[in-house]
Write a protein that binds this DNA or RNA. Structure first.
Lengths: 140, 140
DNA sequence: TAAGTATTTGCAACTTAGTTGCAAAATAAA
DNA sequence: TTTATTTTGCAACTAAGTTGCAAATACTTA
C-alpha cells in the first residue's frame, strides 16, 4: 500500500512525504469524497492545517484529485479515476450528494448529459450535481 | 419601481425596509446573479455587512431569490422567476458561468436533462452548472 | 553513504467570510 | 398616536483560508 501511493506521487513528480502519503491513503480508503475538515479529523494531530491546504492544492494541480462544488458550498475532493493529468481534468461524470448522510460520490458510470445552449453561449465544462438518497441510506 | 419591490416584499409578508427594497432592486437591475460581495460594493456605505447576510438569507427562505453553487465556491444569488414560494424552490433551470467575465446567468429556457441513476440511488434535485463563454464575451 | 541542494513543513500572524447577542431604530398594528 | 413587533447596526466572536519564513525533510550526485 505504501508503495502504491508512493508510486502515484512519484509519477506526478512530487516528493514523497509522510503527509502526502497519508492524505492520499485517506482518499483511497474513503468511499466518498473528502472535505478539508474530514482530513483534519482523520489525521488528528499528525500535521498542520496549512499542510493539508497545500497538499490538497498540489494534488488538484497535479490531477490526482478533483474538487467537487457542492450545494452547501463546502468544497469536497475525490480521487481522479483516469485521464487526469497536470492541468487537465476530465472528470466527466455526475456527482451525487446524499441528503441523509452527506456522503458525496462520483458516479463514474453516469455520463454527463448533453445540454443545449442558447444562441451566443459557448458550452465549455458541464457540472452535474445530483442530491437525493444514496444506496446505503435507502431502505431496501 | 419602488412600489413593485414593496409589493414583492409585502406578498412575502416581510416588513418593507430601506435595505430590503434596495437589495431587491439590485437584483432586478442586475443581468446576472449577485454574490454577497457584489451587493456590498453596490451599496457602498449604505448598510451593514450583517444586514446583507440576513437579508439574503430571508429572501432565500421566502422564495424571492435562490442560491447558485458555483465551481469557485462563492455562492451567488439570483431572482426566482416563478413558482418559488416559502420553503419551496422550483428553479429547474441550468446555470451558466462565463469564464471570461465571471457573470452567472440563469438559463431559464434550458431545462435540466434527465439523469439516469444507478441502482439504489434515489434521484432528488439535479443541479447543472455550465461554464463557457457568454453571449456578451463571444466575438460575433 | 555523506554532503549539498531543493522542496516541504510547521508556526505565527494575518485576511476574509460568516455568525450571534443585544440595544437602538424603524416598521406595522391598534 | 401609542404600543408591540420586527429589523438594523455595532461589537465581538468563530471559522476558513493565505502568506512569509526558518527549521526539517526529501532528493541528488559524487
Amino acid at each position: 500500500m505504501d508503495t502504491i501511493v508512493a508510486d502515484i506521487l512519484k509519477r506526478s513528480q512530487l516528493s514523497v512525504t509522510d503527509s502526502r502519503k497519508r492524505i492520499l491513503e485517506y482518499f483511497q480508503q474513503a468511499n466518498g469524497a473528502l472535505a478539508h475538515a474530514d482530513i483534519e479529523k482523520l489525521s488528528g494531530e499528525h500535521f498542520d492545517r496549512v499542510t493539508i491546504y497545500r497538499t490538497l492544492q498540489t494534488f488538484v494541480e497535479k490531477g490526482i484529485i478533483h474538487a467537487i462544488p457542492t450545494a452547501d458550498n463546502s468544497i469536497r475532493y475525490a480521487l481522479c479515476k483516469n485521464d487526469c493529468a497536470e492541468g487537465h481534468h476530465h472528470d466527466n461524470h455526475v456527482h451525487f450528494m446524499c441528503d441523509k448522510c452527506g456522503t458525496t460520490y462520483c458516479l463514474d458510470h453516469v455520463t454527463i448529459p448533453a445540454v443545449q445552449m442558447p444562441e451566443g453561449f459557448t458550452n465549455g465544462q458541464v457540472n452535474v450535481l445530483v442530491s437525493g438518497v444514496c444506496k446505503n441510506c435507502n431502505p431496501q
